[in-house]
Design a protein around this nucleic acid. Structure first.
Lengths: 217, 217
DNA sequence: CTACGAATCATCCGAAGGGATGATCCGCGC
DNA sequence: GCGCGGATCATCCCTTCGGATGATTCGTAG
């Protein structure tokens, strides 16, 4: 009877899957979570792909997942991949609390968002809360999300726009960016125009600086 | 005799001071380092100031210090504060390997620079190497540092050039910069040309990015 | 005294950037 | 199925940028 069905645990034990590309961080979480007897680490993953695969075979209740994972699939991607169904709750763990990331994580179906500098107990509490289906955002973060929605940078840049702006920031001309991204120069210019619209800037240089400061690059 | 003099340990044990503002990371390091019997964690600090104080009272052989620490004093600052004397070796630990940071850390007297995604054994080896006075940089990092030294910072920007580039980075046009600095547009263009010469760039955007990365703005 | 770098300004010109518009194609959600 | 946003491309036109050159003034280091 300890084979759990999706969404139900056999006991009161919360099955946790750790996902972080840093061995150090995984070790730290492991150490911290052993302090809570109701938490059981049933697996660890280094990459997003690995995390998704493990989550599907081992039925964790909660996936504790770093936002940045090195490979293509980041924490938000993991949350998105595992959303719906009788799926595990995904708690995003990260170092920085940029507004965009919180919003993206929640939109992707994450159960919550935690900073790595949180107190150990806060992390444990968050896992317990996530296991019961609660959404975990600190008061600070909630305020910030709301504030962001209201005031801040219109909306986030699309993937492609980030690509273009990154190249532009590296000093490439529109033509060079076009070659690098295998599109026409016209497309690059269009993207840059949209970027300037979204960021409220009037030049690539300003856009780059703003996006940098917002942590969007 | 286990009161060590600065720079000499009573036994073969390496005294390590952990500095990181994230409890999770400290826990992880603690767990990983216990695997090495010759490493003794003689203290932990959360902030740069705390780290410097502890380092001065507890004579660690190696200070393992996160680059970003939340408060004013970052890892580089800690390295700088503890340099000279019979001081401990400072190993900078970080998530990202930006050139500027490596260079700054080494210039500040750090014994080395490690990425957090390094293998546990690599971290342990690095601490041992640092304890013997070696400088610890991975092959990749060494290459990059050398490349940076060789190609990048010809010579520093003049004050005026920094003024201009800062304005340019804010997205001002040459004319606007000229107005702001009370000079003619021609002067601004001359400055920008000199800046591009010095930084080896061909556009204001690239120059801004490079100068930013070098910490010159 | 002289040489040199920094700061200032100027002119010329081709290359690039940015604004305005419009169009097609595709995927997703209501 | 229709609308909407993202990604793609195009054309027109004006502004700005960047390269090349040359000049003056002013400190300061040699």
């Amino acid at each position: 009877m300890n084979e759990s069905h999706a969404g139900t645990t056999a006991y009161e034990v919360i099955r946790v899957l750790l996902v972080d590309d840093h061995p150090v961080v995984r070790a730290g979480l492991r150490l911290l979570l052993t302090a809570a007897r109701d938490l059981d680490i049933i697996g660890e993953a280094e990459t997003g792909a690995e995390a998704i695969a493990l989550a599907r075979t081992r039925n964790p209740d909660v996936v504790l997942c770093d936002l940045r994972l090195g490979d293509g699939v980041d924490g938000v991607g993991v949350a998105a991949a595992l959303s719906g169904r009788g799926a595990p709750a995904v708690l995003i763990l990260t170092t920085y609390d940029h507004d965009r990331d919180i919003v993206r994580a929640v939109e992707a179906g994450a159960a919550g968002y935690l900073l790595k500098d949180a107190a150990p107990q806060a992390i444990i509490d968050a896992i317990r809360a996530a296991a019961t289906g609660e959404t975990v955002l600190s008061a600070d973060q909630t305020e910030r999300v709301v504030a962001t929605m209201r005031t801040a940078p219109r909306r986030a840049l699309s993937e492609r726009e980030v690509d273009v702006l990154t190249k532009a920031g590296a000093g490439l001309s529109n033509r060079e960016i076009a070659k690098a991204l295998l599109v026409s120069e016209a497309t690059v210019k269009t993207h840059l125009a949209h970027i300037n619209d979204k960021l409220g800037t009037t030049s690539r240089t300003a856009a780059f600086a703003v996006a940098r400061d917002l942590g969007w690059l």
